[in-house]
């Protein structure tokens, strides 16, 4: 009985991982790295653009502007946090891993190395809806999502197939 369960688990995991792999390979894209100049405007309670799609290898030159009050820009996965005073072209930036050493700048340069979905959030309380103020940077190829889609589909087929097998076996025994 126990062996049966282990076998089932192994089958499911194998199928799911196969699905994930298939997803990653199928959606794999390789675009030529380019330079992107991006101006991100922060306004209560969203960023514009609220979604940017870039590719691994790109170099991003990001200018940050706040339109009404002081906002922040905490880009997860890339160790960047900025403090953007409104109606000024300069802002302060720091590396969260490095503590609170703020530096004055007017541009952030990011060399995109990690694929996936990375959110940028406001890090300076900017009003009531502040905790929900965020944008997203999609870096292609987004292996987690592509693999995830494959894994989910593989998982469903794996489960249904197991049920089918079990039914068949039950009938054979009778």
């Amino acid at each position: 009985m126990k062996n049966m369960n282990i076998k089932k688990v192994v089958i499911i995991i194998t199928i799911t991982l196969t699905g994930a792999l298939a997803g990653i390979l199928y959606f794999n894209s390789s675009a030529k790295p380019i330079r992107r100049d991006i101006v991100i405007k922060a306004r209560q309670y969203s960023y514009e653009p609220n979604r940017m799609e870039v590719n691994v290898g790109d170099t991003l030159y990001i200018k940050l502007l706040a339109l009404d009050v002081m906002h922040g820009f905490y880009l997860e996965g890339y160790d960047i946090d900025a403090e953007i005073p409104a109606n000024l072209s300069n802002f302060k930036v720091r590396k969260p891993s490095d503590g609170f050493n703020w530096k004055d700048t007017n541009e952030i340069v990011i060399i995109v190395t990690r694929g996936g979905k990375f959110r940028y959030r406001c890090s300076h309380t900017c009003g009531t809806m502040h905790p929900f103020m965020q944008g997203e940077m999609i870096v292609h190829p987004n292996h987690l999502f592509n693999g995830g889609v494959g894994a989910v589909i593989g998982f469903v087929f794996g489960l249904l197939w197991l049920i089918y097998k079990k039914n068949k076996k039950g009938h054979d025994n009778e």
Partner: peptide
Amino acid sequence: LLGTNGTIK
């Protein structure tokens, strides 16, 4: 809430 669209917010 967890989305990015300012208009809906």
